[in-house]
Structure formats: C-alpha cells, structure tokens
C-alpha cells in the first residue's frame, strides 16, 4: 500500500512565506526559476521569469518524471530516488523530494556547475521544509459550508 493523500490546503500566509524565501534564493543562487509542486503535479508556488502557464505544465511533467523514476527505483530494489537531474545545452533542471508529498524543481542556466546546483537545491529544500511542516501541522483551514453548497449548486452553470 502506498498511502492515500488527502486535500492539500495552502493559506495566504504559507504562500507569502514561501514567496519571500524563493525571491531571496533566486538572487543568492542565480537560479532562473524555482518551482514548488506536489507529487500529483499541481503547482504550489513559483518564482522567477517562468509564466504561470508554463509553470503549471512544468509541474505536471516534473511530477510525472519523478513518479516514473520511482517506479524504476522499485524495479531496482530501491524504495525511492530522492532527486532527478536533467542537463541540457542551455538549461538544467534539478527535481528533488522536500517532504513525502512535495517536490522542488530548480532551473539553472548552463553557467552553474553541477555541484552548485546540488548545493542550492539542498539549501532551498532545507529552508522550505519547516514551512511545509507548519502547513501540515497547523490548524487546517477548511472550505466553508457556503462554498461546498455553492459547488454543488452551481457546478452545472460552469459548463
């Protein structure tokens, strides 16, 4: 059995903290983009020049790559691979597991040496972890009854 994932709830304060951290790391690490996503491929936060539309597609693909890599890990007798790295002519992407549900994708240009990429990915991951732990353990903001009812009543009007 591989564990059911319930709804993931993000508050305004969570995002503000993450945005602040990412903005700082974007300057310090000279990464092009930093993207936080969950294992089902949803974009949680992004920083850098990447557009929201592109970040949404990157998230779906990065989670897919990560998930497929982990099926490969299992075939090789490994429980899980915790990172995957792709190197191109102009751009590199480093995808790593931050917590059991969340992935971090950091995109660099080709000027960054692999060692620096790994260093910064690990550092950003370490900084973001307490925020995610707080998110998981803090009081859970739930959708209101009004919203639940609205969804039931109005969903047909959206089509």
């Amino acid at each position: 059995m591989e564990g059911q994932l319930s709804s993931l709830v993000i508050t305004k304060e969570d995002i503000e903290t993450i945005d602040e951290l990412f903005s700082q790391y974007l300057v310090d690490s000279q990464a092009k983009d930093i993207i936080l996503l969950n294992k089902s491929g949803e974009l949680l936060a992004k920083s850098g020049m990447v557009t929201r539309d592109s970040a949404i597609a990157v998230s779906a693909l990065a989670a897919g790559v990560f998930s497929a890599t982990n099926e490969l890990a299992k075939l090789l007798g490994e429980r899980e691979f915790t990172l995957t790295f792709h190197q191109g002519k102009e751009t590199n992407i480093h995808i790593s597991l931050v917590d059991p549900l969340i992935l971090l994708a950091v995109i660099f240009d080709n000027k960054a040496p692999i060692g620096a990429i790994r260093f910064w990915a690990k550092k950003i991951s370490g900084s973001i972890k307490p925020v995610l732990e707080k998110m998981a353990s803090g009081p859970r903001q739930e959708p209101s009854q009004d919203l639940r009812k609205g969804l039931q009543d109005e969903i047909d009007n959206l089509f």
């Binding site: 993931l8 993000i10 949680l44």
Partner: peptide, 15 residues
Amino acid sequence: MSLIDFSKSEITFKV
C-alpha cells in the same frame, strides 16, 4: 489529491 489554495482562492482537481 485536491489542492485548495486560499492565497489564490483556487481549488484544483486531478482527473
């Protein structure tokens, strides 16, 4: 896993 983002007032479902 549905994603409820209160910061952007968005709910995302995976189908």
